[in-house]
Write a protein that binds this DNA or RNA. Sequence first.
DNA 1: CAATTAAACAACTTAATGTCAATTAAATAA
DNA 2: TTATTTAATTGACATTAAGTTGTTTAATTG
Lengths: 188, 188
Amino acid sequence: MSNNEKMKVDPRIKRTKRMFKDAIISLIQENYDKSKLTVQNIADRAELNRATFYLHYQDIDDLMEQMIDEVLDELNKTMKSPSEDNQSIKKGYPAPRTRLISFLEHFYRNAGLYNVMLENKDFHKRVFGILLEIVTFWAEDRKERGRSFQVPNEIIASSTLGIILWWLQEGTPYSPSYLANQIILMSN
Amino acid sequence: MSNNEKMKVDPRIKRTKRMFKDAIISLIQENYDKSKLTVQNIADRAELNRATFYLHYQDIDDLMEQMIDEVLDELNKTMKSPSEDNQSIKKGYPAPRTRLISFLEHFYRNAGLYNVMLENKDFHKRVFGILLEIVTFWAEDRKERGRSFQVPNEIIASSTLGIILWWLQEGTPYSPSYLANQIILMSN
DNA sequence: CAATTAAACAACTTAATGTCAATTAAATAA
DNA sequence: TTATTTAATTGACATTAAGTTGTTTAATTG
């Protein structure tokens, strides 16, 4: 049985990991100074022993990576299920906008977490990859309708990511659908 | 006499600081793992004593900050002088594009450094501020010519920054002027 | 209940930080 | 050129964090 399957996992482990994750997020959000995060700090905030940390993670980076994997799994799920049983493929062209909105909504819901994690270069790259897929799909859609772009997909994806970064930074001042409109507007 | 004036600075200090800066840049560029940068590493690479580091900097963050200040001073200089004694103000409207190009050229010349430093949140914000100025100036220019925008300046500035980030990440695949064209194209 | 496994805790090793005093070497001004 | 100033070197030391280990306590599961 692959360890990908949902194995029954000891509830103590679930709880412990949840506590470490919550701890690091709250610390980063108030401290703002990731360079002076220590394992001791995290353990203190989680109200767990420092040694327990090493039972689950190699080091702080490892904790971050696991959090990244989780949230990206969730993002991928969000992106796949609701846009495919939508009208998207069947009706033809409301797809791109819907897809972008559900993407943005996921960011909106997890703004605090994303705002922290997008500073991580690796995470940044992976989000860019997902965005590039969206934009490519979108460009093909336009092509079919005879209105192809002059601007490379990478440029559109990276500018969209830039906007999202700023939006999170500023505390998500606009709604996901307004932002989606602005983004679509810019790419025309 | 203000310490703002160019004081004669001991050439030993200049050399030492230069060596620490070069050291940290080269380390980050190969390691890619800023979290495990140590003062000892930096001193080793600089071929200087670790204690000498503390003669000039509080800690690694302080070194980074000083580098940021320097490069932004330079950027500001680049932005001011050449666009103001150009045809810009006199002739009226070749300004915005010229301004953007000289901005991008500065990034192009210092690509390695910027690519490292843009991971720094503070630096990122300051660059965004400069870009916002450029974009605002640019929007006013359009207004005068009766073609105002529907998209907020912040959106344009952040998407431009997103493009620049990606461009640096990929090793500056396009020329500054090509990129400037793409950016201007997108904002229409 | 019995076996298993996680968490707590204390003790310890290693590595990095930050500071200091004494000395050497380089730059500059008289 | 010499004297003076100031930077850099060096080794040492105290402090703090990182990791690891062995043992005890407590929760989970069959």
